[in-house]
């Protein structure tokens, strides 16, 4: 019988770095579940989301925040919203299912990504070296989200506040991703 215990480890072991004008830290307290919209089920899903989270589903490239579970809905494509939220439940899909029932298709993505917070007034100077998206603060607004490629790695960038960004990239290449950011920091700061 099972006398063994499994311990969880995050891709970057909770990395945290401070530099002049920017901090880089691994985010380990967030679950990520993708919610796909069933064909023709937009209204039903929207109704369920509004009823339980009190927000409307964002369009692609935008996000909406709610205080429920400190959650953020990010519009990733026309039929997909990704939900970032705080939980220590190892089955985050169950939480969504409880709230939204069968109004969407849910896939746990929590372990698929390394999440990093890049914060501080130099963050855009750092990102300029790796991110092809136009991050002009008047163009990429707070709450905007984009999926793109940085240094050949698929990435998600979300603007959380004036100078703070959440960056996600594949868990398996987390070391390469953080290296790309650290190299940018070294080159810029």
């Amino acid at each position: 019988m099972a006398n063994y215990t499994l311990t969880a480890s995050s891709p970057l072991a909770g990395l945290q770095q401070e530099y002049q004008g920017v901090t880089l830290a691994e985010v380990t307290n967030k679950a990520l579940v993708s919610i796909s919209v069933p064909l023709g089920g937009e209204t039903a899903l929207q109704t369920a989301v509004t009823a339980t989270y009190g927000v409307t589903l964002p369009v692609t490239g935008k996000s909406s925040k709610t205080s429920v579970d400190n959650a953020l809905f990010a519009g990733m494509s026309r039929d997909q919203c990704w939900l970032f939220f705080e939980t220590d439940n190892i089955r985050p899909v169950n939480i969504i299912t409880e709230k939204l029932g069968a109004s969407g298709y849910y896939t746990d993505q929590s372990d698929s990504w390394v999440m990093l917070s890049l914060a501080g007034e130099k963050s855009r100077d750092v990102l300029e070296r790796i991110c092809p998206i136009n991050l002009d603060p008047d163009v990429f607004l707070i709450g905007d989200v984009a999926r793109t490629s940085m240094e050949h790695m698929g990435s998600i960038i979300l603007r959380e506040s004036e100078h703070n960004y959440l960056l996600c990239s594949a868990r398996s290449s987390a070391n390469s991703f953080v290296h790309a950011i650290e190299l940018s920091i070294k080159n810029v700061i």
Partner: peptide, 14 residues
């Protein structure tokens, strides 16, 4: 496009 089906990469998840 009329089929109700959704795809997500789960390579990294497991």
């Amino acid at each position: 496009p009329d089929l109700d089906v959704q795809l997500l990469s789960a390579t990294e998840q497991f």
